[in-house]
Design a protein around this nucleic acid. Structure first.
Lengths: 119, 119
DNA sequence: TTTATGTTTCCATGATTATCGAAATGATGC
DNA sequence: GCATCATTTCGATAATCATGGAAACATAAA
């Protein structure tokens, strides 16, 4: 993950409403939730929801899937994985300084290996 | 880490210049760098540097230490650790979905235990 | 085809953020 | 004290972002 992409992803999450949306979608699982349901759950006007969801999508944090006249949004776990990998690799002295010892050893290398398969 | 704090921390990092500053400080190690050196390294005017460093500090991502007439800033690894813990715990289906298996098992519980000591 | 429902786009508004020169503040040595 | 260097605050400007009503668009049922 390049720096510019990391900034975009961080910016997408650095907003109360969007973070709430993303967390809701993580809870919802792979099936996701349709726009109206998200808006209802968080009590957000449709236009506002659409605006924020668009930003999450643009950052690659959510996937959209049309189902009838509903649009289901789902959290993209791989994107979050990449962000965490970026933070551990680039903002933690080579992946070691900010993680418990056992996790640190595995994280950097395994994440990169996994990224090659998944992304 | 509470949601509001997570948003603040994410926002602090979600900006090209500030992310560069933080990464520079991570490289610099615990001793850190004084404001002028950071500004010189990244070619930023003093006022702009001060503005961004203040935001990083406000978010708890950097510590400041006065040394003579210099002010040294250092990366706060614990804050980054907390952010990563928040993301894995709250944005990854209970810490599992976004991490390699081996790391995931250790991460959530150990981070929380560690947080109890450090924070 | 009309009607109903879900979602997005358009648009205007207010709020926040980034930038940086100039001036002020703080710290040290003479 | 005064001179010097490091850093921050002030203040103005431009740009970006968040909000949400109204209208447009899309899909499906009657």
């Amino acid at each position: 993950m390049k720096t510019a992409q990391a900034v975009d992803t961080l910016a997408a999450l650095a907003q109360e409403t969007r973070l709430s949306i993303f967390r809701l979608l993580v809870e919802a699982g792979p099936r996701g939730m349709n726009a109206g349901a998200i808006a209802a759950a968080l009590d957000i006007p449709p236009a506002t929801l659409s605006f924020h969801v668009a930003q999450l999508s643009r950052a690659g944090l959510t996937d959209a899937r049309q189902d009838g006249r509903f649009v289901f949004y789902a959290a993209n776990y791989a994107a979050m994985d990449e962000l965490i990998a970026f933070l551990t690799d680039n903002c933690c002295q080579g992946g070691g300084a900010c993680l418990p010892k056992t996790a640190a050893a595995a994280t950097s290398a395994k994440r990169r290996a996994r990224a090659g398969v998944a992304a």
